[in-house]
């Protein structure tokens, strides 16, 4: 038995293989103590809690059980959706395709506008003073307000949700790009200029590489916040899309539909993170020893005014 590797799963084959090992008890203890085992234990624990809650509720209020979804129902629902056997107007793939299209349009517009504004705010003090407060105000506004407002203004079509994505995501882009401009190494600019490096190469080799991590953080945040805003917008002002469909199951009072669709939301977000952002990040920052993105999150205004005063703004 090798001692360095801890088996990832304690499935049956592994444990039978281990029974021939010198000390099965120690091996079992080590498996149980490994973080991977804990990670796998979490869903098991979740299902156990789910079952126990259901059983307890059945004892106390037998009538309430109709509302509560069982894991089996949710699983069956998700499988039906997966094989496109659904009661909703559009199947799972069409629904997520529609939402993704809206998300991407809003995301692209927010990235372009936000980058332009962020660059302007990073380069000019006047622009920064002009836009700072309003960026903060848009950032702090709940997506719900944008969603309801846009649904009333635009009714049931694509523009309301797209505008919601833009408004929800753009402040993150602006703020991150502005931070990126401020963090570009000034010495490199000065040196490039004194060695008469052409402007295009300065942009390509100095500005872009130092801006890239900030742009990347901006894209990540814009995407995830935009997605959260989009589903709310679709609930109120959509005829289709992921948000509309979860609201459809909610209105139909199918708890297993709501839970199952919620699980799809989570899977969608995590898949996107794993399959899109992580590979891009690994590729784009391969040349760096480590990623040092100062990700600007919700409350980045701390010491903002201080920074405005202290940092030289180019």
């Amino acid at each position: 038995m090798t001692t360095t590797e801890t088996p990832r799963r304690n499935d049956v084959s592994a444990s039978t293989a281990m029974s021939s090992a010198p000390n099965p008890l120690a091996v079992a203890v080590r498996i149980v103590k490994s973080p991977h085992f804990a990670r796998l234990l979490f869903p098991v624990f979740l299902f156990a809690v789910w079952h126990i809650t259901l059983a307890a509720v059945e004892q106390v209020w037998p009538f309430a059980v109709d509302v509560l979804p069982t894991p089996g129902e949710v699983g069956a629902f998700m499988w039906d959706e997966f094989i496109t056997d659904t009661l909703a107007r559009k199947n799972l793939y069409e629904t997520f395709y529609i939402s993704l299209r809206r998300l991407m349009s809003g995301f692209a517009i927010a990235m372009v506008l936000g980058t332009a504004l962020g660059l302007a705010m990073g380069l000019s003090r006047a622009t920064n003073a002009f836009c700072h407060d309003w960026t903060m105000a848009i950032l702090a506004m709940p997506a719900l307000a944008w969603a309801l407002f846009n649904s009333i203004i635009f009714g049931f079509d694509d523009r309301g949700p797209i505008l919601t994505v833009i408004l929800a995501g753009i402040p993150f882009v602006i703020v991150n790009v502005r931070e990126g401009v401020r963090n570009t190494p000034r010495e490199l600019f000065d040196m490039a200029r004194s060695f008469k490096v052409p402007q295009s190469r300065i942009i390509r080799h100095v500005l872009v590489p130092s801006l890239l991590p900030f742009m990347f953080a901006a894209a990540r945040y814009c995407f995830s916040i935009g997605w959260k805003g989009l589903v709310i917008a679709e609930v109120f002002g959509g005829q289709d899309g992921a948000g509309w469909t979860i609201k459809f199951w909610y209105d139909a009072h199918r708890a297993h539909g709501v839970v199952g669709y919620a699980a799809f939301f989570v899977i969608f977000a995590i898949l996107f993170e794993r399959l899109v952002f992580e590979p891009i990040s690994r590729r784009a920052f391969r040349w760096r020893p480590q990623l040092q993105t100062e990700v600007v999150e919700e409350a980045f205004t701390e010491n903002q005014d201080l920074q405005d005063q202290e940092r030289p703004v180019r």
Binding site: R39, F42, V231, G243, K247, V258, Y261, A262, E273
Partner: peptide, 22 residues
């Protein structure tokens, strides 16, 4: 850390709307 990793990941990446509806 292993145990709660996925719980934290899900809570951070899922839209608040789904918890509200559920």
């Amino acid at each position: 850390e292993g145990f709660f990793k996925d719980a934290v990941l899900i809570s951070l990446s899922a839209p608040g709307l789904i918890w509200v509806l559920i």
